[in-house]
């Protein structure tokens, strides 16, 4: 039989490591959205003294590349400190897997993002964000790049759904070029709130739809 993937990708796809849900994780990251395709969740258990990732688990609603990359990422991250784990790159993960077809990059990047987002979540929850950066329009915009536009399969910033961002005394207003009765309006709103409200100085998130 012939497959479009390396032996190692297939091996991780068939027998993914560190798979499943973690109860009460110290950090959790969720990337992608069901409405637009692949989705990956990463859970961390971190030693509070050493900041070493003692345990890591993932869940995937995705294709073979997504599952295999998430699996290898958890192997790479386990036993590393969160600072070391942050440096794990997509390139490193794909090399470790013996390469991936170029068209599959999108699905595998999501797994790397998942780990980074779990680490960020841990840092935010544990007051580790060094020299707390005040939330600005740029910070919000960067976060919104992780919210997908289900109609395009790309993020809402790149597809120009976000028309305006206002940040004022902990209150964030995000204007979308999307009617409130749109089939994906609720899903996108929920996704935005989840991504923004965890910022340390944000007290309120408002998503405003077009007419």
């Amino acid at each position: 039989m012939k497959f479009p993937y390396s032996e190692k990708v297939l091996e991780h796809f068939k027998n993914p490591r560190n798979v499943g849900k973690m109860e009460n994780p110290d950090g959790k990251g969720l990337e992608g959205s069901p409405a637009c395709g692949d989705m990956v969740a990463v859970y961390l258990q971190v030693n509070p003294e050493t900041k070493v990732i003692d345990d890591v688990k993932f869940e995937s609603y995705g294709c073979a590349s997504n599952i295999a990359t998430a699996s290898i990422i958890t192997e790479l991250a386990k036993g590393k400190t969160i600072d070391e784990a942050k440096e794990i790159s997509w390139k490193q993960a794909t090399e470790e897997l013996g390469g991936l077809p170029p068209v599959k990059a999108h699905c595998s990047v999501l797994a790397v993002e998942g780990l980074r987002s779990a680490i960020r979540d841990y840092e935010e929850k544990h007051g580790l964000v060094s020299a707390k950066e005040p939330t600005t329009e740029v910070v919000v915009r960067n976060r919104l790049k992780h919210v997908m536009n289900p109609m395009a399969g790309l993020d809402i910033v790149r597809t120009e759904l976000v028309t305006k961002i206002d940040v004022k005394e902990g209150s964030v207003r995000i204007l979308l070029d999307l009617p409130s009765n749109h089939q994906f309006a609720a899903a996108i709103r929920e996704d935005i709130i989840e991504k923004i409200q965890s910022l340390w100085d944000v007290t309120e998130v408002k998503v405003i739809f077009a007419e």
């Binding site: 497959f3 796809f13 068939k14 395709g37 294709c63 073979a64 997504n66 599952i67 399969g153």
Partner: peptide
């Protein structure tokens, strides 16, 4: 996800297609 299903099915000797991106 469909591609994960078709790949598993292929490993068991079944060929089908999916509408997944």
């Amino acid at each position: 996800e469909g591609e994960s299903m078709t790949l598993h099915l292929d490993m068991r000797g079944f060929a089908v297609s999916t509408g997944s991106a």
